[in-house]
Amino acid sequence: MKAFTFERARTPAEAAAAVAQRPDARFIAGGTNLLDLMKLQIEAPTHVVDVNALGLDRVEESRDGGLRIGALVRNSDLAADATVKRDYPVLSRALLAGASGQLRNRATTAGNLLQRTRCPYFYDTGQPCNKRRPGSGCSALGGLSRSLAVIGASKACIATHPSDMAVAMRVLDAEVETVKPDGQTRRIPIADFHRLPGDTPQVEHALAHGELITAVLLPAPVAGVHVYRKVRDRASYAFALVSVAAIVQPDGQGRVAFGGVAHKPWRVEAAEASLAQGAKAFTAQAFAGAQPTADNAFKLPLAERTLAGILQDARAKA
């Protein structure tokens, strides 16, 4: 790990300003991903700003009937929150499907959104990777790509976003609230928060340098059967090959987002009109234009069948 200076910020604006002043500065909250990457020198900040003393650790009902989730609410606390369990169970389920008990106790809501891909070539500093070293090439194309993206990828990068939580937030139409170094705040729809790789896979989200997430906002609850189903190589503590977050209505209409298939949670709203026609019709639209590799082509039928199972169970519950 490279040596760094350290400070503990007292207000969100102070934290944002502290990071904005230095191009190599980083925020640290749970640290469960950043510290790991620092050990590998994939991240090498010269200055680290601890945001754990900012408060921002409450889950509160908002005036519009929705929920305001502080950026520092730990994943385990959010999953166990009584309102989340009752009104947004797809979010509880997604959180509980991710990581381990120890990691969820530290990992935060904002940090979960900002975690980096686990593409093996991103972690292998001896190999080219456009995300880690822009312009060096993509080792995954033509390499081991079984766990990687089948849609929305580019010639520069086929990494997937590893978050389960973000997939549920995408289906819940969450918004990300931020503060910039000049004190200005804004809300970013979750659909626009994560980016597709294109020619700049190192740019993963819509935040400016020094812009700090202060909360995630959920709109009023959506009725229906909430489901998060994750398919992975072992029963626990593994990233998704495919995951599905869904809210299904009694008439078979609903919302669906997929994890483990793209550089961001994958939701195609236009396809949702066809959901009542079944998983085959829906996934044909949601995955139109998919370009899987020979290694990960299995993800397309897996996504369809996982959704089919969800729709079948939802019908039984309706």
């Binding site: 350290f6 640290i28 749970g30 640290g31 469960t32 510290l35 790991d36 680290v48 601890d50 754990n52 008990g101 120890q102 990691l103 106790n105 530290r106």
Partner: peptide, 13 residues
């Protein structure tokens, strides 16, 4: 009182 991975936390935090 909560279980964590001590390898993924800086002492300075």
């Amino acid at each position: 009182g909560r279980r964590i991975n001590s390898c993924l936390m800086l002492a300075v935090m």
